[in-house]
Computed example of a mutant assay.
Amino acid sequence: MTRQAPAAKPALQPELGLIEGRFGRIWNEAERSYVVRTLAEAGYGFYHYGPKADRSLRREWRKSHDAAQAESLARLSAECRGAGMRFGMAITPVGSTHPFDDAARADLTRRVAELDAIGIDDLAVLFDDLRGDMPELAERQAEVVNFCAGLTRATRVYTCPTYYSDDPVLDLVFADRPADYLGKLGRLLDPAVQVYWTGEEVCAKEIGPAHLERVAGELGRKVCLWDNWPVNDGARMSRFLHLRAFTGRPAGIAEHVSGHAINPAIQAHLGCIPALTLPMVYAQGSDYAYGAAFAAAARRLLGDEFAVMLQQDLPALQDVGYERLGVRGGRLRARYEGIDHPAAREILHWLGGADLMTDDEVQTQ
């Protein structure tokens, strides 16, 4: 009798989520509703809303959302909760740490109450992509986060440090990180606060257990991954459609993180294809194959014929880049013009030069 090899044991799966924390245009309600439904059906457990272009959460965080915006966000909260997902909002209180004075406390008290009124399960207080050359940076940031945690009715609180990766590009752009920044932040933050972290790089090619263990040791807690895939914002990345399945995230990292959130692509429908492959990484363990995962996700969302076409065009759309397509751009337009599907329209939109970002756009969001 021939014995069959035992099936691979499924790995643990951390809580999966989406952190809408990218630059670029804000999705409309229909796009966001599609993403919520699709990810909820795939087993995602939370949705954190915090696009950089929402000025009332970032550059003008002291300014309340207007009535129409607040109503739209309340509908999003209800939709997420109705789909079985936790809903959170992320505020980047620019300038609140230096000084963290009575005015900052009053504005934070008011804004956190307004976010609570919209209906949040999670509150995120973010400091990503802000200058780091300020005295007692970790101390002041921890003070602001703990203050907000004491105000909110949300049952979970998150933060993202200014230095949210080992990547030296952060030191180049935002000034050299202070000595023992992560250690100080971890010691001063309330132990219940979860910390977002992107990995060894801002857009990490691989995220492994050894790295995560080292960072957890510094922070005194497991990190929640802010995974910058399939995000494609910014002047450079927006020239490419990020479509391929997840790679470089072994299922074994599940026991080393408190959660795993993805930062989405500008293209809502297309970005759900790689998003659907992340649960496969954890469910399939050593049996995971990223090509097969892409094919399965694409067929599920696009149908067989469209999925095959997209797989054939992956090198052109993801690797060549908008400016270098040349005559291939016209051929791609001809292929997708006949497909009546939102994802096909996103491809045509991109081929037409829309959603291409500039450095100025990033710097002003």
Score class of each variant (00 low, 15 high):
residue 3 R to V: 15
residue 11 A to R: 00
residue 12 L to N: 02
residue 16 L to T: 05
residue 20 E to D: 13
residue 22 R to F: 14
residue 23 F to S: 10
residue 27 W to M: 07
residue 31 E to P: 03
residue 32 R to E: 11
residue 36 V to D: 04
residue 39 L to H: 03
residue 42 A to M: 05
residue 45 G to W: 00
residue 49 Y to F: 15
residue 49 Y to T: 04
residue 51 P to R: 04
residue 54 D to N: 11
residue 64 S to L: 14
residue 65 H to Q: 09
residue 71 E to G: 09
residue 75 R to I: 06
residue 75 R to G: 12
residue 76 L to I: 14
residue 78 A to M: 11
residue 82 G to E: 12
residue 83 A to E: 13
residue 88 G to S: 07
residue 93 P to Y: 02
residue 96 S to V: 12
residue 100 F to M: 06
residue 103 A to H: 11
residue 111 R to D: 07
residue 111 R to Q: 15
residue 123 L to N: 07
residue 135 P to M: 06
residue 136 E to K: 12
residue 138 A to Y: 04
residue 139 E to V: 14
residue 142 A to Q: 05
residue 143 E to R: 10
residue 148 C to Q: 03
residue 148 C to H: 01
residue 148 C to N: 04
residue 149 A to F: 01
residue 151 L to I: 14
residue 155 T to Q: 13
residue 157 V to K: 03
residue 161 P to L: 11
residue 161 P to F: 05
residue 166 D to H: 04
residue 170 L to H: 13
residue 171 D to N: 15
residue 182 L to Y: 13
residue 194 Q to A: 14
residue 195 V to N: 08
residue 203 C to D: 08
residue 204 A to G: 06
residue 204 A to I: 00
residue 206 E to V: 06
residue 207 I to Q: 01
residue 209 P to K: 04
residue 213 E to C: 05
residue 215 V to D: 05
residue 216 A to H: 00
residue 222 K to M: 06
residue 223 V to E: 00
residue 223 V to W: 02
residue 224 C to G: 06
residue 229 W to Y: 15
residue 232 N to W: 00
residue 232 N to L: 04
residue 235 A to S: 12
residue 237 M to G: 00
residue 246 F to L: 03
residue 256 H to G: 06
residue 260 H to V: 01
residue 266 I to T: 08
residue 268 A to G: 05
residue 270 L to S: 01
residue 272 C to D: 08
residue 276 L to H: 01
residue 280 M to I: 00
residue 286 S to D: 15
residue 292 A to Y: 05
residue 292 A to V: 13
residue 293 A to Y: 07
residue 293 A to W: 04
residue 296 A to L: 12
residue 298 A to I: 10
residue 298 A to W: 07
residue 303 G to Q: 07
residue 303 G to T: 07
residue 306 F to L: 13
residue 320 V to H: 00
residue 321 G to N: 08
residue 321 G to V: 10
residue 324 R to V: 01
residue 329 G to Q: 13
residue 335 R to Y: 00
residue 336 Y to K: 06
residue 337 E to M: 07
residue 338 G to Y: 02
residue 352 G to Q: 12
residue 352 G to F: 05
residue 353 G to P: 12
residue 355 D to R: 03
residue 356 L to Q: 11
residue 357 M to I: 02
residue 360 D to C: 01
